[in-house]
Amino acid sequence: MSGLPAVGASGQAAGRLVPGRGERLRTVAALVWPTLRATRISPLLAAGVVGAAIVTPPAVTGSILPPDEHITLLRLVMACVGLGVTFTLDDPAKPTAETLPVAAWLGALLRAVLAAVVGGACWAAALLVTRSGPETTSLPYPDLTREAATVAVVAFLASAVGWRRSPRGIGSPLAAPMLLLGMAVVALLPAPVALLVGTGDGWDAAHDRWTFLLAGTLLVTAGVLTARR
């Protein structure tokens, strides 16, 4: 006899090797604060500040810009916030924390929630600054927010890929350039599949594509985070 506890038909180990639901929840709860504390939020905050600085001059000087130029500036803010998000999963403690009693994706999810809160606040601040300028009330803010959410999810996916590939748990040196490269590719897409369009006939069609991209990226991200190593 090996001495190992026998596992029952329900998956519950006779010797409580597999934790129960309540125990698992308690473990997750215990994981929240250390995870949030370990998450690198300062790059996201710094990137958010740079983003807000990009849209500030037109608002402060009262310059009247065409809607498409405001949209360009807000897209640069998205890229800034996205860059900050690529640092979310950086975790130098990865080599020592690979045998936690909970799945790795739970920790990643907690970090994603924090990034969403901080990144969302940065984005909201940029929108408020833009809106305080002249002739900016009619800008398509909901559609732009959909774009920003997609960029943030793509950034998180890049961060997840970098985190998985890096034995030391530092994925940002790979993820940040990957995000910029992806955005450059998007900027060069030809008209039939363009994503970065101006306000005009192709706006709605492009935003349908943004929605598909958002949904697809969420699925891929979930796949990357839950895939077994």
Binding site: A47, L76, G84
Partner: peptide, 24 residues
């Protein structure tokens, strides 16, 4: 000593490029 700075500077370069094509 942070890898965040370089990508952020690239975005600021894009802001410069935006200025390049501004009529003002």
């Amino acid at each position: 000593r942070s890898v965040l700075i370089a990508p952020l500077v690239v975005l600021l370069v894009l802001v410069l490029e935006f200025l390049v094509i501004t009529p003002l």
